[in-house]
Amino acid sequence: MSRKVKAIVLTGNGTNCEMEMAHACKLAGADMVDIVHISELLFGEKKLSGYNFLNLPGGFLDGDDLGSAKAGANRFLHAPISGADEMLIEELLKFINAGGLILGVCNGFQLMVKLGLLPALDGNFTTQSTTLTFNDSGRFEDRWVYLKADMQSPCVFTREVDLVYYPVRHGEGKFVVESASVLNEMEKKNLVVFRYCNGEGSITMDYPDNPNGSTRAIAGICNETGRLFGLMPHPEAFLHRTNHPRWTRESLPEEGQGLAIFQNAVRFIRSTEF
């Protein structure tokens, strides 16, 4: 029998997209999908070790009051798990070392880069080297964007994915790197998974196809193992063709393009590669 896919969708303190993310995991065939409040982890009622696919959904952790996901990252780094001689971050690092998959969307992606989980170039998962900051437009925007995938990327979530169309819904999605060497290293290792492009697939810095002015049009990145992946656009918002903004005028398959990300995760966990 193949390995069970056990997905956890982490919620609480301002996450918003947990329902649709859990729905995506279910549609993709995960054997178990739990929406878990972060306080269940902090009180030791649930353990990350019981899962192999961690979903960090979009939202506004702590209102994004100190910058997107900043207070949320602070909680992950400094909150102890009651009754256990362990910090939450230690449990998270164990989950990563055990080979678990992590998908961060929007605020979840912001959380990952601010913790240092991505791109984690030297394998150091708690040192931040990139960030996501205010869109060049200075405003939150909800709009659909085209994304071009790097087919050479080690990312396990985007195998066979080429050009997709997802919505972005953020005010702080502009990807910025600490230094040119970080960017070079990321590009050399094909860690840039998705870039904003136009409808024909040409990568662009032009607004609004590139909705936020991200460095080199970067929309999503992974770590070197390809098991940790974060992106600003929302794949879980396109699970059915009626989610597409032009579904009444285009002929589209019933299944939305966002599902592929979750299907890949499920397939990977079931495979011998995991």
Binding site: D142, T242, R246
Partner: peptide, 21 residues
């Protein structure tokens, strides 16, 4: 545009539609 009109994943007819959304 500055309002999220599709969180919760069930958006069918959005406030903006048409060939250029």
């Amino acid at each position: 545009r500055q309002y999220d009109h599709e969180v919760q994943g069930g958006s069918v007819v959005k406030p903006l539609v048409g060939v250029q959304n």
